[in-house]
């Protein structure tokens, strides 16, 4: 068994987790016109989970996390690649993106760029790679 962590650390880690996850989501959605984006959102997600690893130990976190982070990586890459294909097929260049204006019932006029699909792919990719890394070398102390 690992050494017990202080109650301060466990409480803070537990409290801060939802905020970190929300922040990660915000970074992902903000990405197009403001600072943020898929990569940094993915890193934030992994950092949030790494904090849980540090505080609660590998075994306990792994019990709660779904398996298959490598599948996440493949899905992310596929999304990122797929987002570039329409531009290629329409002859306007690989990864060409378009801005679409939608009017949603509650939010009003919303600007949405197709580049978001790419960002989402990168988010999943980074999260998958990060979680795989944690699983690979988070195990024990050499």
């Amino acid at each position: 068994m690992r050494r017990p962590t202080t109650i301060l650390a466990t409480t803070v880690a537990r409290l801060i987790l939802p905020f970190l996850l929300l922040f990660s989501l915000d970074l992902l959605l903000a990405g197009h016109n403001r600072p943020g984006g898929g990569f940094i959102a993915g890193v934030m997600l992994v950092a949030a989970i790494a904090l849980q690893y540090v505080v609660f130990g590998v075994a306990q976190v792994r019990r709660r996390l779904p398996r298959g982070s490598l599948g996440l990586t493949a899905t992310g890459l596929a999304l990122a690649l797929g987002s570039g294909i329409p531009g290629l097929l329409r002859g306007e260049g690989f990864l060409k993106s378009w801005v679409i204006h939608w009017s949603l019932p509650l939010l009003g006029e919303v600007e949405w760029a197709t580049a978001f699909i790419f960002d989402l792919g990168i988010f999943l990719l980074v999260a998958g790679v990060g979680l795989t890394l944690l699983a690979l070398i988070g195990e024990d102390r050499p």
Partner: peptide, 23 residues
């Protein structure tokens, strides 16, 4: 359809498919 990116994209697509089929 422009052929220049095709070798790069096909390699990438194959890599993705292979990692999806890893089991």
């Amino acid at each position: 359809m422009n052929w220049v990116p095709a070798p790069i994209l096909l390699s990438l697509a194959t890599a993705i498919l292979c990692s999806g089929l890893i089991r």
